[in-house]
Design a protein around this nucleic acid. Structure first.
Lengths: 205, 205, 205, 205
DNA sequence: CATGAATGAGCCTTCATTCAT
DNA sequence: TATGAATGAAGGCTCATTCAT
């Protein structure tokens, strides 16, 4: 890669980052190409040398965020890493910590991912929903493995339960967004974990 | 109420409905006042006799949707109506049916409520988040009652669990939105219910 | 005149007055028909039963103001009433008091007459200029009589001097408009009078 | 100054000039931004690259006109240049020629200055009145000097007389505006001059 | 006759995009 | 290649005017 190519890739990177910042701060619609360019200190004509149009950039911003999340989850164990309930519990605990670490450390990520992907386009909304589906599929893989290993209910409706669990993670992400989110979300994760494994029913009920 | 007042209220109603339709079909930003007026076959100046401006109307559309949901849930039993686990299970089942009935029968409702309330305004996003909070509070009331009656775990973290349950309902709502949602969502509701009461752990694990 | 006709004429009168008030307070362009109607507590459709359109009303407002001024000046002596310089001086003094009495007592009159007759229409501007011309003609008649009687310079350029004098009265009217017009305009009138009769030159110059 | 900057300043200049033309021909309110742009053969969006909004441009048009007038008067002698009555008379004559030269050569100048500055804004009207005040102040300086030198009446009410003289100049400006102003205004200037210095009284009266 | 609901021409303004420099 | 001047489609909003009630 020549030096010029490297600089080009670098600026492309910076435009994506600046766009992300602007979208997070003011929203997609309230952000102008000029705002993004000004943030970077470049001419706004330059933007169009790197991206097709305004619609184009948000796709790349989202791509970027998805990649970030996937890489953050990838460091965790694979779906088939847990062979006992306790191991699985620990695994879930690790995942339940990893996701908020991303979302909570930079609330702009869930904000853009959840709030700016809707209200633009059917396509973009679809991408966000696809992401949720993929997340559910991943969870389903975990659950499936647990059923096979026998530490999860044999009659578990894997796919639908995965969606339900997905919803709880969504709740966690949204919870982290609220302004008064100084409360740590560990308690919420704990509650989710207990709910998943034990349900809410009293022992003797 | 005079006849003129009735007609006025009626048109106001129709403008809200037409706006809802437009927002659901094309989104808030892609909808022009002219679109709303054309949908109704009225002049676009007429719109401004009934609502302050474009931003104003979506508030009223949302108000309307919230009212619809609340009235749909209001027919269900109060939080303290269930005194045993089985009664509560039945209650949850009824609620789990009522909500999708609204959302599934008219997918435009969750679409507007979830997707068009973001990307407009911090205020409007806040209203949506508040609605989620209220929903969680209501769930918390149910759970709280269950703990007091003894049919739910005494050590249940009521508030956080309520948020988790809220997330599952959110997943259900989103699930109902997908284009290929011909699948009935009864299975998802069932899975949520099982998850809530029994957890996912195998009996012997 | 029937009772109905009297009421009609009366409302017509009130609309003119209300329009005058609105024009004086907010200006012609910033005044809407609705403002005028609201001032009177009538429906704004009613306006159109009495006047053709918005452009029409200002003509009548101006007509009204002109009539007011003329009637105020009419009480003064006719151009040929003065036969000596002292009589003329006294006459000028009376006129110089009458005009400000109208303008100063109700500054809305000169404001509308001078400021709202321009910036609407060439026609309306023309009417205002015609009014100035008529005023100059009247002054010229006074001067002409004075020359004939011999108490004014025989070589006086009657018409142009009349215009100059007119300008001084204009200055007086504008002077009375300024916000800080608490200063009495008697001094200005005095200065105008001295200038007219004696000029500004030192005796011995 | 770079070439780009020069072109930018030039277009700015042209926009001001075109606006002046439009305002003079149709008035401020009847002129649309599109009219100004069309006059120049530029896109109307370009206008907004140079001026904030419609209200902004008229301020600059007026600034321009005021600058023109001041520079035209600046070539004349300073207030303290005349030391005898004859010198002063000559000075007044020069000024009396300079002003009409601007106003008469381009009647659009007094038209915009006098007629389009009212009926827009209290601010703009105020600016016009301030200009009249400044003009009166300048005249007062001339008169003051004359009194001190002894060639003007010692008991001259300098400030109020200055306002009166101002009014005569105003009359002159307005006189030059009339459509039938083919008559040269030298006669009016002459009349004003005679009135100022000699008054209208007959020698022997 | 009075009313005010309805109308739509028309305006100002924004901003994504293009392209000459 | 970077720039930013120029553009004009697009849209929100106002308000004078009409007309059915």
């Amino acid at each position: 890669m020549t030096r010029a190519e490297r600089k080009k890739a670098e600026l492309r990177r910076e435009i994506i980052d600046a766009s992300f910042e602007c979208f997070a701060k003011h929203g997609y619609h309230a952000t102008g190409i000029a705002d993004i360019a000004t943030t970077l200190g470049i001419g706004h004509g330059t933007f169009y040398r790197y991206f097709e149009n305004k619609r184009d950039i948000i796709d790349h911003v989202i791509d970027d965020l998805i990649a970030k999340i996937i890489s953050a989850l990838a460091v965790e164990n694979a779906p088939d890493a847990a062979n006992t309930l306790d191991e699985y519990r620990a695994q879930v605990g690790r995942i339940a910590e990893a996701l908020p670490r991303i979302f909570f450390d930079d609330p702009r990520i869930p904000r853009v991912l959840l709030f700016e992907t809707t209200g633009v386009d059917a396509d973009l909304t679809g991408r966000m929903l696809d992401l949720l589906d993929q997340s559910a599929s991943l969870t389903a893989a975990y659950l499936h493995h647990g059923v096979e290993c026998g530490y999860l209910r044999a009659d578990l409706d894997v796919d639908n339960t995965a969606q339900a669990v997905n919803g709880m993670m969504l709740a966690s992400a949204i919870h982290g967004l609220r302004a008064d989110s100084s409360v740590d979300c560990a308690a919420l994760n704990q509650a989710i974990s207990r709910l998943m494994f034990d349900g809410i029913r009293a022992e003797n009920a």
